[in-house]
Write a protein that binds this DNA or RNA. Structure first.
Length: 497
RNA sequence: GGUUGGGUGGCCGAGUGGCUAGGCAAAGGUCUGCAAAACCUUGUACGGCGGUUCGAAUCCGCUCCCAACCUCCA
């Protein structure tokens, strides 16, 4: 059983059946971070969301080219300072050192969260020539003008020639934007307030600068994504993603640049992720309502009672839909941690189940198969990970019941169970990107496992002798050592807290 | 002020015009030497006010609140 993948397209504001431009292939572009400071946890959520998109498309059998850029020039602060230069000034480093440092840190965090690396990770500074060429094309087409060494995109001219399409993504109306004719600093060169710089003249103290037909300068913030998506995915491609906060002006301007340069809007499907909140409010450094990924993992923060495994954090993120805001709190993380443990333990239990059914005796096996198909169907519905997890937890209950004897293994055929095991594993680990941490065995793990078996055998002997004092002592001591013993029908099992 | 998206049970979080989301927590039961785990059962929910409808938490209007972005003010 297979359903069609539907995707919520920000452009149309509704779910659409996903049909790639070239059958079997998907071009996916995601706006990556501006690497001037440590990666924000909210960014992590966005990139985990797109990791799911990427993984699920792969699981559907598509050949995916996943491009996620690194912005290392042109993104200015409110004061007009380049974010990279600001980072360099604060850290007393060369701007490219800053970019490298925080790109490395970003990669470390994403790897820890078990996110797959993109196929191509281009940098804005590595594509200055492409960006200059793009500016030139836009000028040639009459949608940009040069003033004193800077080049501005002419939104009014663009709109006049393109049926007022500026604002199609964000819902903003150009006349509203135009009427807000308040003059901002260094905007006096613009013909209209809604015009935006695609190339900026570099002043004497500006470090990041390149030669161009318009003098020494640097590319505007939105330009790099237009240039790089076009270069690696073509003038028209399938999916463009990014955080909700980038919808305007960043993505709106990107579309305008693409259309302005080559008449194609770039992406056919736009996917936007929603924001991560903490304790019901936005994360903000100024009022202390913030936590870094590292602090979350280590527990070194007043906002959490303990450190959380990155895989628990990932699981936590998957419990909400990518288009909803998600509220991070210690209580919610505690719940996620327990749910994650329950899920992984069920997976471990499943490995040891022996199906004894066959022929007509396969009712439970059928239920397992149907439940799993339902979970996959939820993924087809706009990558609905929380619903997929809900279906999976219903399967967890069945797996536990099979082990506990409430459901009979006589009602599961071996073939069905083997298939179920494979497909569930694919969903959990390949698609959702979870990882069974306890099972990542090495020689030490092997030795520990053997030693535990010896201890459990001794304890079993004590229990057989009704020596409760000794058996409880062993259990308590192990508990203090971080190992939980659980007595079952077929002997005891153990797990690390 | 504008644009967009939200307000769901103790917490998190799906969803939908009538059919149990799920996780965590809580209560009762089964199992167990005890405990834990597991399994079974259970509960007050859809911000407020109107309207449409046989029926709305789900559609419409108004209002309050939250978030992102833009803008304004400072």
């Amino acid at each position: 059983m297979s359903t069609e993948l539907t995707v919520y397209n920000s452009l149309s504001r509704q779910k659409e059946v996903f049909t790639p431009l070239n059958a079997g292939h998907v071009g996916l572009y995601v706006c990556g971070p501006t690497v001037y400071n440590p990666v924000h946890l909210g960014n992590c959520r966005t990139f985990v969301s797109f990791d799911i998109v990427y993984r699920y498309l792969l699981a559907k059998g598509y050949k995916v080219r996943y491009v996620r850029n690194i912005t290392d020039v042109g993104h200015l602060t409110d004061d007009g300072e380049d974010r990279m230069s600001k980072g360099a000034r604060l850290e007393q480093l060369e701007p490219m050192e800053v970019a490298q440092k925080f790109a490395n840190q970003f990669h470390d965090v994403m790897r820890t969260l078990n996110a797959l690396p993109p196929s191509i990770e281009p940098r804005a500074t590595g594509h200055i020539i492409e960006q200059i060429e793009l500016v030139q094309e836009i000028i040639n087409n009459g949608y940009a003008y040069e003033v004193n060494g800077s080049v501005y995109f002419d939104v009014a001219a663009y709109n006049a020639a393109n049926e007022d399409r500026y604002g199609e993504l964000s819902g903003r109306r150009i006349d509203e934007l135009l009427s807000e004719s308040r003059e901002l600093k260094s905007q006096d060169e613009k013909r209209n307030p809604s015009d935006f710089a695609i190339w900026m003249k570099a002043h004497e103290d500006h470090i990041l600068r390149w030669n161009s037909p318009w003098g020494e300068g640097f590319p505007g913030w939105h330009l790099e994504c237009s240039a790089m998506s076009t270069k690696y995915l073509g003038e028209e491609f399938d999916i463009h993603g990014g955080g909700n906060d980038l919808k305007f002006p960043h993505h709106e301007n990107e579309i305008a640049q693409n259309v302005g340069a080559c008449r194609h809007a770039g992406a056919r499907y736009w996917i936007h992720t929603n924001m991560l909140l903490m304790n019901g409010k936005k994360m903000s450094k100024s009022d202390g309502n913030t936590i870094t990924p590292e602090e979350l993992f280590s527990g070194d923060s007043p906002h959490v009672s303990e450190g959380y495994s990155p895989l628990v954090v990932r699981f936590f993120m998957l419990q909400s839909h990518y288009r909803s805001t998600m509220d991070l709190s210690d209580e919610a993380l505690q719940a996620a941690k327990k749910g994650h443990t329950r899920l992984m333990e069920a997976w471990n239990i499943l490995q040891d189940l022996e199906a004894k059914g066959g022929g007509q005796n396969d009712t439970v096996g059928k239920e397992l198969e149907e439940g799993l198909a339902a979970a996959y169907a939820e993924m087809d519905d706009d990558f609905n990970t929380p619903r997929a997890l809900a279906r999976i937890f219903e399967l967890v209950t069945r797996i536990n019941a099979l082990q506990g004897g409430q459901l009979s293994l006589e009602e599961v055929s071996p073939d069905r169970l083997a298939d179920f095991l494979t497909r569930l594993g694919t969903l959990l680990f390949d698609v959702l990107g979870l990882r069974n941490e306890a099972a990542s065995a090495g020689a030490e793990q092997e030795a520990l496992s053997n030693a535990m078996q010896i201890i459990l055998d001794l304890r079993q002997q004590a229990r057989t002798d009704k020596n409760w004092a000794l058996s409880d002592k062993l259990r308590d001591a192990l508990s203090h050592a971080g190992i939980t013993v659980k007595d079952g029908k077929d002997g005891a099992t153990w797990s690390i807290e």
